[in-house]
């Protein structure tokens, strides 16, 4: 059994009285694609900064690719890639020029490796396009290429596919899965459920604590123990008020043209009767599927 690529034990970081990361524990194995979710200020970035050896832990320990993040942080950084939405690509340079420039930053001067990387992210044929003329999806591929040029064994992705449609997102993820299959380990931080659904395991952070980490399927099964109902009724707002008061409802919210109700006890007829009694017209009530967003909201409240 090989060592985990990321090993985190009781990792903690305080800023004064504020505990940004609070005794978290997790492991990520080679070739895994793991998502890291949490609201702003929940400790996601602080965790990543400690894993990159940019910030000292107050307590606990972590190893990345077998290197201690405190004592061997340079070894760590030489072997990881980082792709962020806020990353600067030079708009008035071509794809090839950008990649060559950033390759140089990592000490990669081998032209062959640059060409190979362009090929890997599917940018062959676009070498001489100015990056300002690239669509968002292509720019994201270039950012990925820049993060990959030094052949990292571990890749951190920060909202890698924000702002693209499902076809472009899918093409990007197919690339990520190929990398994972070749042994690269991937940790994705994101706010977006559309992205989290692509991860093999997902961790949820809140207030510095890692509340859960499991496969999307297991999270949905273990956190959302109730049934999901989609209630189409008029008027919607009054329907919300009525169901909010109903005992045994775990959560109810407005979802566009219907109400989304999560409850393990309430039956369809109970809702139907109660709404009708309150002069709310019920069009239909259907069973829904739990989503990662339901999981997130259940954990985060």
């Amino acid at each position: 059994m090989s060592l985990p690529v990321i090993y985190v034990e009781n990792l903690t970081r305080r800023f004064g009285d504020f505990v940004a990361v609070d005794h978290i524990n997790f492991e990520v194995n080679e070739g895994e694609v793991v998502g890291y979710l949490g609201p702003n200020g929940s400790g996601k970035t602080t965790t990543i900064r400690m894993l990159l050896g940019l910030l000292m832990p107050s307590e606990g320990e972590a190893t990345v690719l077998g290197y201690d993040v405190v004592r061997q942080s340079e070894e760590v950084r030489a072997r990881v890639g980082y792709m962020s939405q806020k990353f600067a690509i030079y708009d008035d340079l071509t794809t090839l020029e950008n990649l060559t420039f950033y390759g140089g930053v990592y000490g990669i001067t081998d032209k062959k490796r640059i060409i190979e990387t362009l090929e890997l992210v599917g940018l062959t044929g676009h070498e001489h396009t100015l990056t300002r003329d690239l669509s968002t999806g292509w720019r994201q591929r270039l950012s990925l290429g820049i993060a990959l040029v030094h052949k990292p064994k571990l890749l951190f992705l920060d909202e890698p596919t924000s702002g693209v449609d499902p076809t472009a997102r899918r093409a990007f993820w197919d690339l990520i899965y190929e990398l994972a299959a070749s042994g690269v380990t991937i940790l994705v931080t994101t706010h977006y459920m559309d992205e989290a659904e692509y991860c093999e395991r997902v961790g949820v952070m809140r207030d510095g604590k890692l509340l859960a980490m499991d496969t999307p399927t297991n999270l949905k099964k273990s956190i959302i123990t109730g049934n999901v109902w989609e209630v189409f009724a008029h008027p919607l707002e009054q329907g919300l008020d009525v169901l909010q008061e109903l005992e045994g409802v775990d959560r109810v919210g407005l979802a566009g043209d219907h109400l989304r109700v999560i409850s393990s006890q309430i039956q369809q007829e109970t809702m139907q009767k109660l709404l009708s009694k309150n002069n709310i017209q019920v069009e239909r009530i259907e069973r829904g599927e739990p989503t990662l967003e339901d999981v997130f909201l259940a954990l985060a409240r």
């Binding site: 702002g163 706010h191 008029h234 008027p235 707002e237 407005l254 997130f296 909201l297 409240r301």
Partner: peptide
């Protein structure tokens, strides 16, 4: 854009309420 799921959920509840409370829906 760039807003976490909890905040996004709150924002959507406001938007849906705004429309649901307006006369045409009643």
């Amino acid at each position: 854009t760039g807003v976490d799921p909890v905040t996004r959920q709150d924002f959507w509840q406001l938007v849906i309420k705004l429309v649901a409370a307006s006369p045409s829906q009643s």
